[in-house]
């Protein structure tokens, strides 16, 4: 479904991604692991169109998206739930959600109530807060809202950037369970996470980014057992 070839991305003068080649198939969860600063955000951001690649190619469902801006990429079916949530802080929960459907608003106008309902069923706590400004929510709810907004775009491929950041373990587990549930319904997901432990629990496969390259790529199952991963990312020895 997604085929990326030789992806090279600069942030300022730094070459953050150094010729990455990979592919993602429909229906799988791929975790992108790596230390802080490894380039996880840059990778998912580049896939979403935020950072135009200096070289390489991004092909999604047989469409070349290389160098396309985010507003075109979301239309093509890739939706990013960005790092730090990036909510529309002053707007209500409900408005944040319906704006998630912006790129297809004209077609989806009539379906909006049903789409909202789907998100509220996924995250019931959001329903109670739907008239509250997004900025008044707790961190966990804000993350759920960010995911809900991403889903409102009806993506074929959902990108998530560190959904566990700053959240209590219980909330992280709840969110990971939800993602796992989405996958069960056929949602394809790329999950960038520093929290390898949580990500490997739900992922099918994972890559480990190091200095702009994919240092390791294997099934989640194998990586969970991998001594290098356990030492570096899972806090065991």
């Amino acid at each position: 479904m997604l085929a990326v070839k030789d992806l090279t991305v600069f942030r300022g003068h730094i070459r953050v991604l150094n010729g990455l080649t990979f592919s993602v198939s429909a229906g799988e969860i791929v975790a992108v692991l790596g230390a802080n600063g490894a380039g996880k955000s840059t990778l998912v951001g580049a896939l979403a169109g935020l950072y135009p690649p200096a070289a390489g190619e991004i092909v999604f469902q047989n469409r070349n998206l290389t160098g396309r801006p985010p507003e075109a990429v979301v239309h093509a079916g890739i939706s990013l739930v960005p790092e730090h949530r990036q909510l529309f802080a002053g707007l209500t929960v409900r408005d944040n959600l319906i704006l998630g459907a912006y790129h297809r608003y004209r077609d989806a106008k009539k379906e909006l109530p049903r789409l909202l309902e789907d998100v509220y069923r996924l995250f019931p706590a959001l329903r109670e807060k739907q008239e509250k400004p997004a900025q008044t929510l707790s961190g966990g709810l804000q993350q759920m809202l960010a995911i809900g907004r991403g889903l409102m775009a009806d993506p074929r491929l959902l990108l998530l950037d560190e959904p566990s950041m700053g959240l209590a373990p219980l909330v992280v587990r709840e969110i990971m369970t939800t993602l796992s549930g989405l996958r069960a319904k056929g949602q394809t997901i790329i999950l960038a996470e520093q929290n390898a432990h949580a990500a490997l629990k739900i992922a099918d496969r994972a890559w480990v980014l190091e200095r702009g390259c994919i240092a390791l790529s294997d099934t989640a199952e194998n990586l969970r057992q991998d001594a290098r991963i356990q030492a570096a990312y899972l806090g065991r020895s």
């Binding site: 935020l50 985010p70 239309h75 002053g90 707007l91």
Partner: peptide, 10 residues
């Protein structure tokens, strides 16, 4: 409020 997030929703 948030130009980047706005672009991400289209």
């Amino acid at each position: 409020m948030n130009r980047t997030a706005a672009r991400l929703v289209g």
